[in-house]
């Protein structure tokens, strides 16, 4: 009956879109990773990610290893246990079942008889699931380009903006920030401090003012000052609050109107600690803001971050960036292979 339950769910999922693959082809304008002079610092970042993920890895890999050792042949019980491990990693029941089903097929195809092979196949599948929609590049073709940053409360929007701004500035771009969170106490000041740290201007109004007005002003300023990238902060809001989502919709209406023909990114920030609710968050934010990518924060904890696999699979939205710490440098482009390697190596 468990099987039927999931089967039903699977059917609800629409077919894969081709967009993600197309996007992948144009992922040549990479920032950082391919430049040799930055390889060292990136190694550091990778190290940091790995450090953070060590616990994750321990979680998954050790258990997979234990499991594999304890089974001499591949049987139903092994698959069931693998299911459990993925669920524990916050992949969610749907994604877990999909992947396990695929794993079964692959085991058959490869005529795998050794339970140890299963781990490799599982890793392969997880990587593929992520690569399907992968596209770490931010579309920042025009001057100015605009990046909107949205998400529920406390996921790390402002911090992520500080890091993204720092990264873009490091690439020689002229960046401007907009303090669109006019609601939360101290949010404007928090963004200003991040701006100061990187020497970036912040357009702000007073606390309690209309966020749409701030964003409008910032867009005009970005145009007249000829900045390359404008990054807009927005107030954290729970996706089930209709009025707050409407407010966000209004802000986006202005952005679309004022930035016609300009490159626009709409990034949804997700907390790696979040469980299945992240899918719901992504769904509704996507409806309202047409999100173009995800930023996964707080990956330096013990949270497995498996929700990324579910969200990108279910919504066909690529993870673009990951946060692996509290420092300005602790932001990385998302690489499926590295991500999964770090989980399993």
């Amino acid at each position: 009956m468990l099987k039927n339950l999931f089967k039903q769910k699977e059917e609800e999922n629409p077919e894969e879109s081709e967009n993600a693959r197309d996007d992948e082809k144009v992922t040549t304008r990479q920032d950082g990773e391919e430049k040799p002079e930055e390889a060292v610092s990136l190694g550091g970042l990778f190290g940091r990610l790995k450090e953070g993920l060590t616990k994750t890895k321990k979680g998954i890999t050790d258990r997979v290893d234990d499991l594999v050792k304890s089974y001499t042949k591949i049987d139903e019980e092994l698959f069931e246990e693998l299911e459990e491990i993925l669920i524990t990693a916050d992949l969610g029941v749907n994604t877990t079942m999909e992947i396990i089903d695929q794993l079964r097929d692959r085991v058959k195809e490869n005529k795998a008889t050794d339970p140890k092979e299963v781990k490799g196949l599982l890793k392969e599948l997880l990587t593929e699931a992520l690569e399907e929609v992968a596209n770490p590049t931010l579309d920042l073709e025009t001057t100015p380009s605009i990046i909107m940053v949205v998400g529920v409360n406390g996921v790390g929007k402002t911090t992520s903006i500080g890091k993204i701004a720092h990264k873009l500035k490091g690439e020689g771009k002229k960046v401007l920030l907009a303090a669109g969170d006019t609601f939360r106490a101290g949010a404007i000041e928090q963004l200003k401090i991040w701006g100061e740290r990187s020497g970036i201007d912040v357009i702000s109004h007073q606390e309690g003012s209309d966020p749409a007005a701030v964003i409008y002003d910032a867009i005009q300023a970005a145009k007249s000052r000829k900045v390359d990238v404008l990054i807009c902060d927005t107030a954290g809001r729970l996706h089930n609050k209709k009025n707050l989502m409407n407010e966000l919709g209004k802000v986006f209406k202005i952005v679309r109107r004022e930035c016609e023909g300009l490159s626009q990114e709409s990034l949804l920030v997700l907390d790696a600690t979040t469980g299945q609710n992240a899918i719901q968050q992504a769904k509704i934010f996507k409806e309202v803001t047409n999100i173009s990518g995800l930023v996964l924060t707080k990956l330096d904890g013990t949270a497995k971050g498996g929700i990324v696999i579910s969200v990108s699979k279910e919504l066909k939205v690529p993870v673009k960036l990951i946060g692996v710490g509290e420092k300005l440098e602790d932001l990385q482009s998302f690489e499926p292979k590295i991500f999964v390697d770090a989980l399993f190596d």
Partner: peptide, 10 residues
């Protein structure tokens, strides 16, 4: 945070 996933136990 009430939205916390499996990691809540840790």
């Amino acid at each position: 945070d009430s939205m916390t996933g499996q990691d809540a136990v840790n």
